[in-house]
Amino acid sequence: MASAPVPTSLSPQSSASSAAEPLLDVQNLSVEYQTLRGPVQAVSNVSFSIGQGEVFGLAGESGSGKSTIAHAIMRILHSPAVITGGNVLFDGDDVLEMDMEGLEAFRWRDISMVFQSAMNALNPVLTVGEQIIDVIQRHQPKTTKQQAKDRAAELLDIVGIDGKRVDDYPHQLSGGMRQRVVIAVALALKPQLMIMDEPTTALDVVVQKDIMQQIEYLKKELDFSILFITHDLSLMVEFSDRIGVMYAGEIVEMTAAHELFNKPMHPYTQGLMASFPALVGPKETLTGIPGSPPNMLEPPSGCRFHPRCPKAIAQCSLQQPTLREVEPGHFVACHLY
């Protein structure tokens, strides 16, 4: 339990800072919700990439734009959302340019997604086996029913559910087991990238731990990449190779997980770090962050964090800072650097 030396899996070598072509490359993505009360700039000029086998984490509070990015990558944004700029390259192909046929093949096979509150997303009138078989047969029409069913049982085993429960209905399973089924569905077509949007937020820590360990193990075995979204910074640092911290639709800091943990540079990240009580070590009075997240209908001028920033200078309300590499591999959007 007590603090241990920084383990090797968090050390820089393993943080796959993709020297090669990245698997996913998001470039200057902007998304707007065109609401009756005016446009909401949910995502502004966001860029990041994910390498082969890498876990990239998107951290940030509720409303900061994390799910919107995930939905844009999957091309499942609906009106009133509009992608107003940018590119999303998967293996070199622009996802934003794909036609329906291309998308049909791309989703689930290349990238799959585990949705926020996914455990309520299973169809209650189908057995868990039927839901997995459905995905397999839709994308691999040549698979026979029996083959698909065998594969479904195998997938359940992989995520830690007895394969015999393939004929169970969702209501016969606990929340944690339903979440595992959703992960099994996402794994069905052996995707290269899995997007996990708050996959364990609704679960207890013990179940969360068990599922995250399972995912870690599967990732090693099956070698896929992960875009991991959560507001829980501790879990994120523990699980990710690199992390982007979002505030009000923008990435304000991006670096390797251990670097972010040991040396947060953006005042917002520093404030977040000062918002989580620790389980071990001296008890310090935490300060959190004053104020509350902005109304995205009228985001603050200049640096969007300036009304809450304890270190703001005159320039901050006037000029928007850009994300710059202030140390090797450590990107920060702040006038202090």
Binding site: M1, A4, P7, M177, V206, K209, E238, F239
Partner: peptide
Amino acid sequence: LLLSAVPNPEVALGQREVVARGE
């Protein structure tokens, strides 16, 4: 078990034994 499951950034996942599973 409860304490071992709390996310702890200083200890990477999978390095600690989870002492019991199940629900």
